[in-house]
Every structure is written in structure tokens, then in C-alpha cells.
Simulated scan of single mutants.
Amino acid sequence: MPTPTSAPQVPADVIDMERALTRVAYLAGRARQHERLMAIADLPLDRAAVTILRHLAEADPLRPGMLAARLTVEASHVTRQLTQLEKAGLVARMPDPDDGRAQLIALTGAGLAAVERIREAGLRGMRMALADWWPRDLEVLAGLFHRLVDDFVRHTETAVDGSTAS
């Protein structure tokens, strides 16, 4: 059994980044932050519904199972959320042209408008937080964030030990 001293050293900057990302995720995911965002956007949606709406806004219509897989949640969770969003008129089901037995989910006009209000409310807070940053710093940060997300997505299927996740 390997001893802790035989484990590879993690560079201090990687540890600092992990701590910062954890803190950002915590701050962004707090219930109070979500409630504030929904108050500004004037929408009565929970966090799971917002996540689904944002994802649908960035994708072609999807089957519910594919949406669940992309969000890495159980299909039943997505089904419950989609039922509520459909009742609210924010998403619609349509036949899958490739398989008449399957359905696709897409945003309605009201759903797209809701996503735009959510984005605008979020951007308002980001503009305030980043108001003192130099434009070049924002450009560099945006590029690095995209690279970070792309690398995370690319490595999502790989477990920590290097084996493929099932």
C-alpha cells in the first residue's frame, strides 16, 4: 500500500485554483444567490429548472434521456423538472423526426425569454463585480475560463486514476 509521501506532489498553484473554484462554485450556488437572481429576473424557478433552461438554450432540441446524461443526473429527475417547465409554458415536447416513438424537448418563446432574463440578471452582478478590471484582463480571464471548461469536459469521462469512468 503506497504511503502518502509516495503520492505525486500537487503544485501549489493547482491547489490554489481548486480552492478558488470551490469558493466560486459555493458562492454561485448558494440558495440566497439563486433567490436574488430569481427576484431580479422576476421568475419563480428553482435551481434545477434554471439549469435545464440554460442547457436547452445552448443546444438543439434534445431527448429527455440525453439531457439527463449531459447534466449527469437521473432521467427521473429531468422528467419531473420537464413536466413542471412544460406546465409553465417554458418548454415543449415534439416528436423526434428520427424516431417517431421518441420526443424532443425545446424551449418555447417564453422559455427563451426566461433564459434571457436570467442571463441579464446574472450579467448585472458580474458587471458590478468586475467593474474595476482592465479590459485586457477580462479578455485573458474569459479565454482561460473557456480553456479550463473545455479541458474539464474533455476529461470528464476519465476517472482520477486514469481509467475510463463507466
Rank of each mutant, 00 (worst) to 15 (best):
23 R>V: 11
24 V>Y: 14
25 A>R: 08
26 Y>S: 08
27 L>D: 10
28 A>F: 13
29 G>A: 03
30 R>D: 12
31 A>H: 14
31 A>T: 15
32 R>N: 09
32 R>F: 11
34 H>G: 12
34 H>T: 11
34 H>W: 08
35 E>K: 10
36 R>G: 14
36 R>L: 11
39 A>N: 08
39 A>P: 02
39 A>K: 10
41 A>H: 02
42 D>M: 10
43 L>D: 00
43 L>C: 01
45 L>G: 01
45 L>K: 00
46 D>A: 06
47 R>M: 15
49 A>L: 04
49 A>H: 07
49 A>W: 02
49 A>P: 03
50 V>P: 00
50 V>L: 04
51 T>H: 10
53 L>N: 01
54 R>P: 03
57 A>Q: 08
61 P>Y: 00
61 P>W: 00
63 R>P: 06
65 G>C: 13
65 G>W: 07
66 M>A: 11
67 L>M: 04
67 L>I: 01
68 A>V: 01
69 A>W: 07
71 L>T: 08
72 T>Q: 09
73 V>G: 04
73 V>P: 02
74 E>G: 07
75 A>K: 10
75 A>I: 14
75 A>V: 12
76 S>P: 03
76 S>C: 05
77 H>A: 11
77 H>D: 10
78 V>C: 03
78 V>P: 00
80 R>P: 05
81 Q>L: 10
83 T>R: 11
83 T>V: 09
84 Q>I: 09
88 A>G: 08
89 G>K: 10
90 L>Q: 06
91 V>M: 03
91 V>D: 00
92 A>E: 11
92 A>D: 14
93 R>H: 12
94 M>T: 14
95 P>A: 06
99 D>A: 04
99 D>R: 05
100 G>R: 08
101 R>Y: 12
102 A>T: 13
104 L>G: 01
104 L>D: 00
105 I>F: 02
105 I>T: 07
108 T>R: 03
109 G>P: 06
109 G>W: 14
110 A>F: 10
110 A>G: 12
110 A>H: 15
113 A>C: 07
113 A>W: 06
114 A>S: 11
114 A>G: 07
116 E>A: 09
116 E>N: 14
116 E>T: 10
118 I>T: 09
118 I>E: 01
119 R>N: 07
119 R>P: 04
120 E>R: 12
121 A>D: 03
124 R>I: 13
124 R>H: 15
124 R>G: 10
125 G>N: 04
125 G>Y: 01
127 R>Q: 09
128 M>Y: 12
128 M>G: 06
128 M>H: 15
129 A>S: 04
130 L>Q: 09
130 L>Y: 09
131 A>V: 06
133 W>S: 13
133 W>K: 15
134 W>D: 15
135 P>T: 00
135 P>G: 01
135 P>E: 02
138 L>V: 03
141 L>M: 05
142 A>V: 01
142 A>S: 07
143 G>E: 02
144 L>S: 05
145 F>P: 07
145 F>I: 13
146 H>M: 08
147 R>A: 03
148 L>P: 01
148 L>T: 05
